[in-house]
Design a protein around this nucleic acid. Structure first.
Lengths: 145, 145
DNA sequence: ACATAAAGTGTGACTCAGTCTCAATTTAAC
DNA sequence: GTTAAATTGAGACTGAGTCACACTTTATGT
């Protein structure tokens, strides 16, 4: 699992290799992401960051989220809301999500049987699979009557 | 698979049972949905309908899409865009989607192995599954180099 | 067919997430 | 320290979708 220092190194590396600048804003945003819950929304994060660093703009937060996604430090996810969610990109190569409809709790899982079956289904339908996403919505222990 | 007359009957029934009105607008929108590709976006549909029936407003189209979703005539789907897609709600009870990243073609599939495995995964994680969605993105025959 | 009450409609203002422009600032590299 | 190029903040803008409300239409009882 990616820790802050590994992420920072990855970021600096990417910036250097692409003639991009290592800015205070980018550092701050990366730091704050690591303070934040592992699954989060851009706007939530922006509001949180804005409170602590009132010079950082929405545009910069969104731009940085895009940047970090490209590098593979975070990952844009659809978690059933009508806006994007992000998560820290753990080492687990593919994983999908169980989401509690009541409390929003997110559990990650990876399953070989499903992965394999997806590849088979793609082939059977004449497609080459590039990526996939699976969300299971339900109720967690605390929210089942 | 649901045909227009079955859908219309379902709609009239629901309206009657819920003290709602059968309006020209609702009829027109239902008719146009059946003229349209089986997977569509609200805004696309609105523009198409607006051309032919220039008195029908965006609000009515969106309201009717919600209504038809509640009844189960259409279904709101996430097909990887950052706005909602809809599809005619076929009889196939659960199905998921293969989506070509290049041309947007959508293929439907249902798979017992995956369905079963999802239930197992939910249980193993202490959740009761309510619904799920799986999208496989890839390239269809015509768009594989 | 007609009156009536309740539901539905169109308009346009609004929201919300996200993007864009551009002048001013900051960074990296010499 | 200079300089060119990258980055930033502000706020205007976009696009999907929602909302309020005056006006219209429907369903029902007569």
């Amino acid at each position: 699992m990616l820790d802050f220092h590994a992420a920072l190194k990855k970021l600096r590396n990417h910036l250097k290799n692409n003639d991009l600048r290592f800015t205070n804003e980018r550092l701050t945003i990366l730091e704050e992401i690591f303070q934040f819950p592992p699954h989060f929304d851009a706007e939530q994060l922006f509001i949180y960051i804005r409170k602590k660093h009132n010079h950082i703009s929405r545009a910069t937060v969104y731009r940085t989220l895009d940047l970090l996604s490209q590098i593979g430090i975070i990952k844009k996810e659809n978690l059933g809301k009508d806006y994007a969610s992000y998560e820290l990109d753990y080492k687990m190569p593919h994983h999908d999500h169980l989401i509690c409809e009541i409390c929003g709790k997110v559990i990650e899982f990876a399953d070989d049987i499903i992965e394999k079956r997806q590849r088979e289904i793609s082939e059977n339908n004449g497609m080459v699979m590039v990526r996939h996403q699976l969300q299971i919505f339900g109720r967690c222990k605390e929210h089942t009557e």
